[in-house]
Design a protein around this nucleic acid. Structure first.
Length: 242
DNA sequence: GCCACCGGTGGC
DNA sequence: GCCACCGGTGGC
């Protein structure tokens, strides 16, 4: 039986903040490490094969999203980074757990507030997992992290939600796009609205509430630790950091 | 000509 | 100041 935290005990604001720990890990300069096409990726430090984690890589992105076959380049020839892994922080022990797939991540994210993530939720993939197992990943200066908004709905069946990191860090660091079942790219709720109106055959059972164009908040690893510590101090002083 | 990408801006 | 939205444009 999973232990459960009592959300009622937390001040709403603190509760909100304490549940913010669904995060992307972004690989910033992974262009030198693109795995050969079709090669399963097993690069996650400190994990053994039993864990069978699939890390979200550029190669995976091209396979599952069908949107890119080559790393995109901007005018300067720089390769845009892409999301390398998805991780969620356990609401009990605060350790980071890698999520085996983007789809699973979206599933967790969708209900993160009502169902805070706990290590044991990964039981299906990692039978030995519990809060006593050491953290999957530690901020080590090699990655960029971005904090997701909790409770973003999963995209409708056959639709895909893509976070596209920009190659040049100008006004914003990423964009969210939705791809329709017929692979048309939409970039705002008004475009979604119009598309659904003009394609009633694809609009069945689909409504605007299922879409969110919110991009995650980019944070430096250092800030991430400070942020985490601060929230811990606010919310649960007696908990130990992983 | 198309479209992916990025910057600008208007509304809040 | 933030962010949702979309126009412009450069590369293909």
């Amino acid at each position: 039986m999973d232990p459960e935290i009592n959300l009622q005990d937390l001040h709403p604001k603190k509760r909100w903040r304490s549940e913010l720990y669904a995060q992307f890990v972004l690989a910033w300069q992974n262009n030198n490490q693109l795995p050969a096409e079709g090669t399963p990726e097993k690069n996650v430090n400190s994990l053994d094969d039993n864990h069978q984690l699939a890390v979200y890589t550029p190669a995976d992105a091209s396979a599952s999203d069908g949107t890119v076959t080559q790393p995109p380049q901007n005018q300067a020839g720089r390769i845009a980074p892409s999301v390398e892994a998805y991780t969620v922080q356990c609401s009990l022990c605060y350790k980071w757990r890698l999520i085996p797939s983007k789809e699973k991540f979206e599933e967790i994210r969708e209900h993160l507030i009502e169902q805070p993530f706990v290590c044991r939720a990964l039981y299906q993939w990692r039978p030995q997992i519990s809060c006593t197992v050491k953290t999957d990943l530690q901020p080590d200066g090699s990655k960029l992290w971005a904090i997701e908004t909790p409770n973003i709905p999963r995209p409708p069946p056959r639709w895909k939600r893509i976070l596209k990191i920009r190659a040049s860090q100008g006004t914003r660091f990423a964009d969210v796009y939705y791809y329709t079942p017929s692979n048309k790219r939409l970039r705002s709720t008004t475009e979604v609205q119009r598309y659904l109106r003009e394609h009633p055959n694809e609009a069945d059972g689909v409504d605007l509430g299922q879409f969110s164009f919110k991009i995650p908040l980019l944070v430096k690893e250092k800030s991430l630790e400070e942020h985490t510590t601060r929230v811990l101090q606010d919310g649960r002083k007696r908990r130990r950091m992983p």
